[in-house]
Design a binder for these strands. Structure first.
Lengths: 144, 144
DNA sequence: CTTTCTGCAAACTCTTTGCACTCGT
DNA sequence: ACGAGTGCAAAGAGTTTGCAGAAAG
């Protein structure tokens, strides 16, 4: 009934907190593996879910098939590169959206986030004409 | 090399345009099936991808494992119910995000969208205490 | 006729889960 | 010791793809 402090959970949170790149479960798996070589991917997922339930991380599902994980810090927004899939943190955009109207209508609004989409600096420069440059990451499913 | 106007593509777009509920691929499959009973799910996915490439729809990947599709109309934002998973269209929020700063820094910003998360009206009313009410849809992976 | 598209089924990717065992507390 | 957590491997969703035949232009 009670949450235990296992090495696996600790190492996972450490890896996430040390990341600035919104890693996928697989990427976290590889990083935690360097500390705990016998950890399994199933455990990564189970512990990510626990951290989420406890509000210690946010699941970022901006584009592509995989979920990305973001250690919960201050509210912020995201820029997503349509070309390479990279996600960049942005300071929280100003102005609160029309939550007031929704609340008046019987909705509970807990939080919100904005995502900007486009082409990042790195891809813009290596994107001359048509050439390869940075390989597109999430070929399908451009998302909101 | 050229896009053909097949019955399947037409029926799919019609079904999407007639939808107001951000259907999943599976839901669109069921709806198109009523018109073309022999259509396959693979064709649904292939044609959704074509419509996306042509800018005729937007992929909405707000929460849960499945992509949802949104016929491209005016810019708008979304409210997502954490409880039942429903997605409601909102008028575009008034906030102009910090796109200017990004552009100045060498990024191309093509578009943006805001998602609000919370509990919808329907779930709020049938959510007294603990009881069943509306069943949660996407049990895992709350997303941005 | 030529080329793209379709239906089908198998393959793939990402994520979840059952089970027997391990390890925090 | 008790029970939550783990590794492993198999199962599940959701999505993609190869192929032979169908159909649009």
């Amino acid at each position: 009934m009670k949450q235990r402090a296992t090495r696996q959970l600790g190492a996972l949170y450490d890896a996430l907190a040390a990341s600035r790149d919104h890693p996928t479960a697989e990427q976290l798996f590889q990083r935690v593996r360097r500390v705990l070589p016998r950890i399994s991917l199933g455990t990564i997922y189970r512990n990510l879910d626990k951290l989420r339930e406890h509000g210690r991380l946010r699941v970022v599902r901006l584009a592509g098939g995989e979920a990305r994980y973001d250690a919960m810090t201050a509210a912020h927004d995201h820029f997503v590169c349509d070309h390479c899939g990279d996600v960049v943190d942005l300071p929280r955009c100003g102005l609160t959206p029309s939550a007031a109207a929704l609340r008046a209508d019987g909705y509970e609004v807990h939080w919100h986030t904005t995502a900007l989409y486009g082409v990042c600096k790195r891809c813009t420069s290596s994107h001359r004409g048509r050439g390869a440059g940075v390989a597109p990451r999430g070929r399908r499913a451009q998302a909101v």
